[in-house]
């Protein structure tokens, strides 16, 4: 039996938005520690890894580890039926094929129940062609700062953030640098990752030459995180 109650559905809504941008369905692993997910997009270029600790729920009960195959769009539709300050309860039987979701208004005068069918997810989905890539962004980090530059068909653009300065929107930028690095990525994916921005005031980008980019957003005050991994564009 899995049962978890969350006092505010907002985090779950934002989290599902941030996941659905990359994947259609995923296996959500439920354990006594909380809920986690690791899934690649269909082209195997990016990966999303999410963890929502049991502290994000009260109570949180998980008698046996479960893997729930969830169609993210479907869950998103159900979540849209709740108000932001609704209390949400998730329930699943150990050998069931349904996830029950209950929303209750804080004063208890309204309750709605949904039963979502779980799916068997084929983890080894075949790759689709990587035919339609958007433009590339090159990220260059030096001791002076962080620079994003894009070369388009008809125009070029670049943005630079200085180590101790402030970005365009006034937010602080801090850089922890071992070695300078320059990497190129598909902008399309970075745009997908920004879907997680409402979950956190701060985003952390981790780069190292010739390795995937890691983009991390913390959830709440130690409640968990969502991380995206993105394969770089490289010389053949």
């Amino acid at each position: 039996m899995f049962e978890a109650r969350m006092s505010d559905t907002t985090v779950m809504k934002r989290l599902m938005d941030a996941i659905t941008t990359l994947i259609d369905d995923g296996s959500f692993d439920i354990s006594s520690k909380g809920i986690s997910l690791q899934a690649m997009d269909s082209s195997h270029v990016a990966l999303v890894a999410m963890c929502l600790r049991n502290e994000a729920f009260d109570p949180f009960r998980c008698d046996r580890n479960l893997s729930l195959g969830i169609q993210c769009k479907q869950m998103g539709k159900i979540l849209k039926c709740s108000a932001n300050n609704d209390v949400m309860t998730l329930k699943a039987e150990d050998d069931g094929d349904v996830l029950n979701m209950v929303f209750e208004s804080p004063n208890g005068d309204r309750m709605s129940e949904f039963a979502m069918k779980l799916t068997d997810i084929d983890i080894e989905q075949s790759c689709r062609d990587l035919s339609n890539f958007g433009e590339s962004v090159t990220i260059c980090v030096t001791k002076d700062g962080l620079k994003f530059s894009v070369k388009g068909d008809s125009s070029n653009a670049s943005m630079k953030f200085s180590q101790n300065g402030a970005g365009d929107d006034g937010n602080d930028v801090s850089i922890d640098l071992n070695d300078p690095c320059t990497l190129t990525f598909a902008v399309k994916y970075l745009n997908h990752f920004t879907k997680a921005a409402p979950l956190s005031e701060r985003v952390t980008l981790s780069l190292s030459n010739d390795t995937p980019l890691v983009v991390e957003y913390k959830i709440g005050d130690g409640l968990g995180h969502i991380r995206y991994y993105l394969a770089p564009k490289m010389e053949e």
Binding site: H44, V45, L47, L130, A186, K233, M234
Partner: peptide, 14 residues
């Protein structure tokens, strides 16, 4: 020119 690499080149998901 640079080509998009696959994440599978770096690691495999569980």
């Amino acid at each position: 020119p640079k080509q998009q690499s696959s994440l599978l080149k770096f690691f495999k998901p569980k």
